[in-house]
């Protein structure tokens, strides 16, 4: 039983329309580059996304610190990640790349700070 699906590529602003034939292998058509083919194969097996959000930060110039998953995680897990991050509070100073949560929602992917945020008091 093969499954056919169409997705828009998210690897670059071109946004190629990828046609996926999903069997034991995933066949990708409509891509214009290698990254598109890789993306299509991944989409056919398990769509993955980077999750951007914010956490509360104390004593900083802004009330929120932007954070994201360091790598992309399964699309099915996005809501779990959001729930795990909710209510999380960090304290300034923070440096870009600092690990805010080591292993978020059992994905074994860390959540990292997207920017420096100095302490302001």
């Amino acid at each position: 039983m093969s499954d056919e699906r169409e997705v828009l590529c998210i690897r670059c602003p071109k946004g190629c329309r990828l046609e996926l034939k999903i069997d034991e292998e995933v066949i990708v058509e409509g891509n214009q580059c290698k990254a598109g083919e890789d993306h299509g194969k991944q989409e056919g097996r398990e769509p993955k996304r980077i999750v951007p959000t914010t956490v509360k930060i104390k004593d900083a110039r802004w009330p929120r610190l932007p954070v994201r998953t360091k790598e992309s995680i399964s699309l099915d897990k996005v809501k779990d990640v959001m729930e795990a991050v909710e209510g999380f509070v960090v304290e300034a100073p923070i440096e870009k790349g600092d690990v805010v949560i080591k292993d978020v929602a059992g994905t074994s992917v860390p959540v990292i700070a997207e920017r420096d945020m100095e302490k302001i008091r």
């Binding site: 828009l8 998210i10 602003p13 946004g15 329309r17 996304r49 699309l75 996005v78």
Partner: peptide, 13 residues
């Protein structure tokens, strides 16, 4: 807007 945003912002969810 860009197709990739249609996919990852609207269609994904």
């Amino acid at each position: 807007g860009l197709p990739r945003n249609a996919q990852q912002c609207i269609l994904d969810f």
